[in-house]
Design a protein around this nucleic acid. Structure first.
Lengths: 176, 176
DNA sequence: GTCTATATGGTGATAGAC
DNA sequence: GTCTATCACCATATAGAC
């Protein structure tokens, strides 16, 4: 893995552990590069945060597009909102963490807004219900917020299944 | 209003504007007191954050207890999750903002966990359904998270009503 | 109780050697 | 491209006058 990816990976891990984007010192130390090396790839803190957000948005976007093609956008959204297994969670921490260091309305905030609108659109297309799509989207956000804030641990698979059964009932009211 | 309340009020306002607990300098300046005056009431940053969280938790708790007595805990939870009118929002920013500066497992994190469990219990008692109560709780968390992160503005009253109509259907499936 | 003044540490950013 | 060395700045925290 090249240095840049190493840095982004370390930054993402620390961000998710702490709930905020860590200092450049900590990122460099965790990534195993010097501070100067980090700065070469990300000339400013804002550049690092943006790199973090862009990578995460793309990752989630790819996952959602794939899921939507299989008619599982809604389920994917809920599942993507929490860490699974040894994989670190995805983008969701960024929007919150980012707000900690940048002003609203900047590039990253705008990109996040657009991405979320796109994803909610996928869910809506699947459920055919604007409000239900919004409920599903917000449940995912709530799950992510709680894990990020350290209020609760990541829910178990059974827990998620129970949530999905309520959110995505089949035509006869049973889980699909 | 006494100095201490003035400080807490300024700190809460800034926290909600920015998404993170601001510096003591900014809090003191906004509250119109000197830094030394602030320190007299809150000897450390942690003390300020804790004061912020405790006050907010109590405020939300009182609102939820009142609502639960009227059988409106679920609705109150969703409405309390977003700022309404000229009133500043309540507690929810604290759990996230707090995580930015303190470790999980400390006093405030524990208090927040207990409070949330208590509130979800009220909703559950009302809906009679564990999972639906959890969905309602998470929707509130999602709403709060988005507003705090600056991803979206506070939803309109009509928007909230639509959400509640789906979350709290009457016996015949209509909004109550 | 409230203030001014100061100490100390960590942060983002820069310059320049290799 | 990657590193070391160093900068100026801002944060929390402290000491002590009023």
């Amino acid at each position: 893995m090249d240095r840049r990816s190493l840095i982004l990976d370390a930054a993402r891990r620390l961000t998710l552990e702490r709930g905020v984007v860590p200092s450049l010192n900590d990122v460099a130390a965790t990534a195993g590069v010097s501070k100067g090396g980090l700065v070469h790839h990300f000339p400013s803190r804002a550049a690092l945060v943006q790199g973090l957000a862009v990578a995460a948005l793309e990752e989630v976007d790819a996952a959602m597009v794939t899921a939507a093609a299989e008619g599982r956008a809604a389920e994917a959204w809920v599942r993507l909102s929490v860490p699974t297994g040894d994989d670190v969670p995805l983008f969701r921490a960024m929007a919150i963490a980012h707000r900690a260091v940048e002003a609203p309305g900047d590039d990253v905030a705008t990109a996040a807004q657009e991405a979320i609108a796109r994803w909610e659109g996928m869910i809506q297309h699947e459920t055919g219900d604007t409000v239900r799509a919004r409920v599903i989207r917000l449940v995912g956000d709530g799950l992510a917020a709680n894990v990020i804030a350290g209020i609760e641990p990541a829910p178990t698979a059974e827990h998620l299944d129970a949530l999905l059964a309520v959110l995505l009932p089949g035509p006869d009211g049973t889980p699909r």
